[in-house]
């Protein structure tokens, strides 16, 4: 039960991923980072089959960095999203497809517009104002439908994220060991301190 969440606002994109690395019923690690930085202003979060996830994410990361070095320019979040989709789509019809769901968040280096892309393992790509993967979709999308606004500030975005994570703590049957939270702004990617020890009482 992995959790991936993404929220865009006025001048930022927030990406959050659960910290638990699970194998069957066992939690192997409680400080896992399911994100990779692709360039200065693009961050990718991933979940899915163990092994596939990191392999695919780091392949994409390496190619994004290679592009930046060769051309002395970063690819835009939109360009990267379509590149990732292309790679995932050709993998889908190969002998052994990657089983990876992704969220790709970024801020355009030129226009400073924040963006968020939702990609599933079938390589369906959707640009969205807010997104989730896995069971989190069933709990969080309705909360975000009600409370999200494209013009929110980073503080409001973190509040909204807390609202979602509280609901997950309340309703998900297993402990996902808190969340890694990162914000993409025009100045780059920053780690957001997030209180994982907050106890949410169930009904």
């Amino acid at each position: 039960m992995e959790v991936l969440l993404g929220i865009t606002g006025r001048d930022f994109t927030l990406i959050a991923a659960s910290k638990a690395a699970m194998r069957g019923a066992t939690i192997l690690k409680a400080s896992d980072d399911k994100t990779r930085q692709l360039n200065k202003h693009t961050l990718m979060a991933f979940m899915g089959e163990a092994g596939d996830t990191v392999q695919f994410a780091e392949y994409i990361q390496a190619n994004a960095q290679l592009y930046s070095m060769r051309n002395e320019t970063d690819l835009s979040p939109s360009a990267l999203a379509h590149f990732v989709r292309g790679e995932l789509a050709s993998s889908l019809r190969s002998r052994k497809p990657y089983n990876v769901n992704l969220l790709l968040g970024g801020v355009d280096p030129i226009t400073h517009k924040p963006s968020l892309y939702w990609l599933d393992y079938l390589a369906a790509l959707a640009p969205l104002p807010y997104a989730a993967h896995g069971y989190a979709q069933y709990y969080c999308l309705s909360i975000l439908d009600k409370h999200h606004h494209p013009d929110i500030s980073l503080e409001q975005g973190i509040k909204l994220l807390t609202l979602c994570i509280d609901e997950l703590k309340r309703r998900l049957p297993v402990d996902f060991k808190g969340m890694v939270v990162k914000a993409v702004t025009k100045d780059g990617i920053v780690d957001i301190e997030f209180d994982d020890d907050k106890v949410v009482k169930s009904a």
């Binding site: 989709r85 789509a89 079938l122 390589a123 369906a124 790509l125």
Partner: peptide, 8 residues
């Protein structure tokens, strides 16, 4: 049809 194929 399948969204991935629409894009492709």
């Amino acid at each position: 049809g399948l969204a991935t194929d629409l894009s492709t």
